[in-house]
């Protein structure tokens, strides 16, 4: 595992469970992060991002009244989005495929299954650092490229060449 120094990165943690906000913030601070903000709802998190320039957002999937998928959709597609490219790590209690697919299709970068640990969280942060994703825009989708791996058996047209 590369020894990254992440103390200059700014994180926003959005979770309606106060204890999870405390836990994730404590882990980040333990890893050297100096600037962590938290929000208890999608609405509060979205508003906070207008002023707080987070480098990475960690957002719970299951929240009410709006959930992590709706947050991701707002960030990626709203006209007033503060940063439509911000990497999002989605905290999930669900490992169910359909839910993960919905979140992926909304434009999530990484999934972190609860229960959270320092090692698991850092692994996801490291993945975002090491694998910057190109974004794609189609009539149906805007977000990080969902085709993450090179598929030697891919027979379709190669359309993922960034515009220079």
């Amino acid at each position: 595992m590369a020894d990254y120094n992440i103390e200059k990165l700014k994180f926003l943690v959005i979770d309606d469970d106060q204890n999870m906000r405390r836990l994730v913030s404590t882990i980040l601070i333990s890893l050297g992060v100096k600037d962590v903000s938290t929000a208890r709802s999608v609405d509060a998190g979205y508003t906070m991002l207008q002023k707080f320039e987070a480098d990475i957002v960690i957002c719970d999937l299951r929240m009410e009244p709006q959930d992590g998928i709706e947050f991701t959709d707002m960030i990626r597609n709203s006209d007033d989005s503060p940063n439509c490219y911000v990497p999002i790590i989605m905290l999930t209690g669900h490992a169910e495929k359909t839910v993960v697919e919905l979140a992926r299709d909304a434009g999530v970068h990484e999934f972190l299954a609860k229960p959270v640990s320092a090692k698991k969280l850092f692994q996801k942060i490291k993945s975002i650092i090491e694998n910057p994703r190109v974004f794609v825009r189609t009539p149906e989708y805007f977000g990080p490229d969902r085709r993450r791996r090179q598929d030697p058996d891919f027979k379709g047209p190669e359309r993922r060449k960034p515009h220079s």
């Binding site: 120094n5 480098d55 090692k119 850092f122 975002i128 190109v134 794609v136 189609t138 359309r159």
Partner: peptide, 28 residues
């Protein structure tokens, strides 16, 4: 209908490697 975009990568400038404060196995 497919546009591929290379977003600005702010993380690259902010993340260092090694030295004090780096997240090694002991830090984890």
């Amino acid at each position: 209908k497919l546009e591929v975009i290379n977003p600005p990568n702010a993380l690259k400038q902010k993340v260092g490697t090694g030295g004090p404060g780096a997240v090694d196995l002991e830090a984890l």
